[in-house]
Design a protein around this nucleic acid. Structure first.
Lengths: 244, 244
DNA sequence: GCGACAAATCTTGCATACAAGGCGAGCAAG
DNA sequence: CTTGCTCGCCTTGTATGCAAGATTTGTCGC
């Protein structure tokens, strides 16, 4: 937690500092986010940290276990599938809805692909993780829809957490090729193809996960005792639902 | 603001009380949400109200003007278009991604259509507004994706705020027919058609807006005085926007 | 009457104080 | 060695207090 990029983002950016740390895979799912520690790091009082946590909770990035603490979400296998499905729906819809690719847009995408390639060559895995997620955000940005960009950014953050939990091995090259194919289809103006390629690409990534791997070492014991699969407060809905 | 349904939702549902008030068009865009008033209404301290506001801010439902107050968002014309585009992307993607409609799902949808019809017959406009938004949420629920449901709920809330700002006249029957057509296509198993019908439907609603009409800063006062909604003359005279 | 200026009165922003509960260390008993 | 218990530390939960800025109101000079 020591590299949350302290003072620069500080004043109003506690949220973004954390999200960006997740996007670049610098903090793992399940990481405890202590209010007082964050307050000390950013040199503000707990109040503001808490407010940031509330916002992040609404975005499905962290959750709170009462009187125990705030934690970066650990998506369950079910939630992981939900996230991927949501991304397929949105990204495919986005591409299908697109009608043309500007010159500038193509430049941006090609530059991004070049960066990916460079990161692969350099073997910079952390940077690569970040770029792999960013690619999809770039596409949303091309569509010019700020709302969808925000949504996809949060979903991408969750995706990265998921891959940290369940990804056995990272086929960077395969993902990169997927991205290249999507850009090629876009360049050719065939956005329907780009959309189905995107769906396919996300499918590939999802099936590359080992969703049987439980993040919880006690999963087997829990299962044999027929207890609910997840501890508590695992879902982002926990905060949005009135309790009976 | 007196009918935010006070104590029932109270304890952890300040958020939902406000969102549900928006969904049923009981509070207008630009409504001031005073921390102390809400605190008094829900019989909690300002702290918790503030936390709720933070969450709602992250969801794009309210915004804060520093040292001035919290306000229900007043989407600009640009934002309105963005919201509709996002809905088109997501809802069309959702329908295209759907493969079958369960018996139970069909029942739910038909029941909903019946409710719409009843509300039209009864002329219960507030209930109708609520139902018209809920229809799209129902569809998302059928897809079983909790994330997309939450997203669409928030977008629907914004849509309702938009229609309160820009909708000149409300063609309830036309919208209802649109919904019926979508359900019919789904029933026939033709989800591609349902998707394009949904896009068309959202287009219809969007083009039914008068996005040239500027949000009226005097709307709430005008409303409480039961004055005629707005004239072009008064609009051009009294249009000063406070957005930075 | 009217415009400028000042003070009163709101509002949120933020920190701090204290309460309530979880969790583990330590200890005692079996 | 294991089990059960208690105490104390550490966490978040919540309220309150005060500061700072914005708006409105009141007043004065013209």
């Amino acid at each position: 937690m020591q590299d949350l990029s302290p003072q620069q983002f500080a004043q109003n950016g506690i949220d973004e500092a954390i999200v960006s740390s997740i996007l670049s895979a610098r903090i793992r799912p399940g990481t405890r986010l202590s209010e007082s520690q964050l307050a000390a790091l950013f040199d503000v009082s707990r109040t503001r940290v808490r407010e940031a946590m509330m916002r992040l909770e609404a975005r499905g990035i962290v959750n709170v276990s009462p009187r125990r603490g705030w934690f970066v979400v650990e998506p369950s296998a079910d939630e992981a599938m939900t996230v991927y499905e949501a991304r397929r729906v949105i990204e495919a819809g986005l591409l299908r809805n697109m009608s043309r690719l500007t010159e500038r847009g193509l430049t941006v995408l090609k530059a991004h692909l070049a960066e990916e390639k460079a990161a692969i060559a350099a073997g910079d895995r952390q940077r690569l993780t970040c770029l792999m997620g960013d690619f999809h955000i770039r596409i949303a940005e091309l569509a010019g829809n700020a709302i969808l960009v925000d949504i996809l950014r949060d979903l991408t953050a969750r995706t990265i957490l998921i891959s940290m939990l369940y990804q056995s091995d990272f086929h960077a090259m395969q993902s990169h090729l997927g991205h290249c194919r999507i850009v090629a289809a876009m360049e050719a103006g065939d956005f329907l193809k780009a959309a189905s390629l995107a769906v396919e690409h996300l499918d590939d990534v999802e099936t590359g996960l080992d969703l049987t791997r439980r993040p919880d070492p006690l999963a087997d014991l829990r299962h044999s005792l027929s207890l609910p699969p997840q501890t508590v407060a695992s879902s982002s809905k926990a905060s949005r639902k009135a309790k009976p």
